[in-house]
Simulated assay, not measured.
Amino acid sequence: MIRHLVLFKLNEGVERDDPRVVKGVDAFRALDGTIGEIRFWELGWNLSDRPIAHDFAINSAFDDADALRTYVEHPDHQAGVALWREFATWVIADYEF
């Protein structure tokens, strides 16, 4: 299995209630059950007020590298990425477990 972690940082001046952010969260929330390769899916807002913390996280899992690639290239995932690109940056980590 491959764990796919994504940590998002909202751009300066962008808040969680910004309509673009709400739409972006909804787009990623909708992926659960939409893309068959997803084996595990959770997401949520960070609760920590530490200055090094990111704002939002996705924790997901896939059977193998091919399944992860299919997810990454899926049009619904790409549509969500395009939304987030307008108001955030992110880092990822993919590892086998």
Rank of each mutant, 00 (worst) to 15 (best):
34 T>R: 15
21 V>N: 05
22 V>F: 08
26 D>R: 14
44 G>I: 04
92 I>F: 05
69 R>K: 06
29 R>T: 05
41 W>F: 15
35 I>A: 06
71 Y>I: 14
47 L>W: 02
97 F>Q: 07
32 D>N: 04
53 A>Q: 10
13 G>F: 01
36 G>V: 11
57 A>K: 08
24 G>T: 12
13 G>N: 12
94 D>G: 05
90 W>T: 05
91 V>P: 02
48 S>F: 07
52 I>Q: 07
75 P>M: 00
34 T>F: 04
67 A>T: 10
79 A>V: 09
72 V>M: 14
92 I>M: 06
95 Y>K: 04
13 G>H: 11
27 A>W: 04
75 P>C: 03
63 D>M: 02
81 V>G: 04
94 D>K: 09
79 A>L: 07
95 Y>H: 13
47 L>Y: 13
51 P>D: 10
39 R>D: 12
63 D>V: 03
96 E>A: 13
97 F>C: 08
86 E>A: 10
61 A>Y: 01
37 E>V: 15
63 D>Y: 00
35 I>F: 13
53 A>F: 02
44 G>P: 05
64 D>E: 03
92 I>A: 11
41 W>A: 12
57 A>R: 11
58 I>V: 15
75 P>W: 03
41 W>I: 02
55 D>E: 05
36 G>C: 05
40 F>R: 12
66 D>H: 09
20 R>Q: 04
20 R>N: 08
53 A>V: 00
81 V>C: 06
97 F>L: 14
75 P>K: 05
30 A>W: 09
62 F>P: 07
53 A>C: 09
36 G>I: 09
19 P>V: 13
18 D>Q: 03
31 L>N: 08
20 R>H: 07
66 D>K: 14
52 I>A: 08
24 G>W: 01
29 R>A: 13
45 W>L: 13
12 E>W: 00
39 R>L: 13
46 N>C: 12
65 A>F: 09
62 F>S: 08
96 E>C: 05
28 F>Q: 03
26 D>V: 02
64 D>Y: 08
68 L>F: 12
32 D>E: 14
46 N>M: 07
24 G>M: 02
60 S>G: 05
30 A>E: 07
96 E>F: 08
53 A>D: 06
31 L>A: 02
63 D>Q: 14
16 R>Y: 01
56 F>P: 02
89 T>E: 09
61 A>V: 03
58 I>P: 02
17 D>V: 01
20 R>K: 08
47 L>N: 00
22 V>S: 04
23 K>E: 15
61 A>D: 08
96 E>H: 11
69 R>M: 14
93 A>H: 12
26 D>I: 06
33 G>H: 10
64 D>M: 06
90 W>G: 05
29 R>V: 09
51 P>Q: 13
44 G>W: 06
87 F>N: 09
81 V>I: 15
28 F>V: 14
61 A>Q: 14
19 P>E: 00
37 E>I: 11
95 Y>T: 04
86 E>L: 15
97 F>M: 12
66 D>F: 11
94 D>P: 13
79 A>N: 12
47 L>I: 04
15 E>R: 11
74 H>V: 11
60 S>A: 13
59 N>C: 10
46 N>L: 04
62 F>T: 11
84 W>Y: 07
50 R>D: 02
67 A>P: 05
69 R>F: 06
